[in-house]
Amino acid sequence: MGKIILAKNLSISYDRAKIISSSSFSVENGDFVFLTGVSGSGKTTVIKTLYGEIKPSSGDLYIGEFNLSKISKSKISLLRRHLGIVFQDFKLIPEWSILKNVTLPLLIAGIEKNIAEDLAIQYLSKVNLSHKADKFPEELSGGEQQRAAIARATIHNPVMILADEPISGLDEYSASLVMDLFKKANEKGITIIIASHSIPKHFNINFKQLHIEKGKIYELA
């Protein structure tokens, strides 16, 4: 299996405030992880640190071979091309169609537009959105936008998906559809890290829980 995330004495500060102090944890390749904690505990900060938006203030944080404590800007771009990121506010490009949004990681990887679009159609049908491929994000509901965002996050076969509160704000039906998509991605071997204030009810899959409390990250059984 091997470790995909390894944190040693990791501390993270944001806006001069210490959010995480001297925490160590690891995540195995293919794990399904919930990063939990109350609002304001630092879940989003940890997710942002994992995709290189925030630099650790001390300690080491490895994602595969990348040490995020010493990573250069160009390497961050390289790392992100191997990740899939899902946001609470979806972060779809408003002036692009859903189809074009989903092709984004492939276009960045230099794949031809026609091939990328064919693949995007397949991924949109997996999330039951192929009929809305030509629509723009504002024409879709929150649940649909999140499903499109998941299609975008998985289309390039990332090694890990980082999701920041992906189901908060969604109705129960949409939330369960979104969680199913994460499960399917995990079944394909993709490591999933979901930041959420709680673990969804009736979630029948083996998962690992990293819990943030009082600035420390704990691995719960």
Binding site: I76, L78, R80, L83, L92, I93, I108
Partner: peptide, 16 residues
Amino acid sequence: NERMYIMELFGAPFWF
């Protein structure tokens, strides 16, 4: 700004 930020989140290079 928004479009370029989203692209950057997915590792888009400068020219892209």
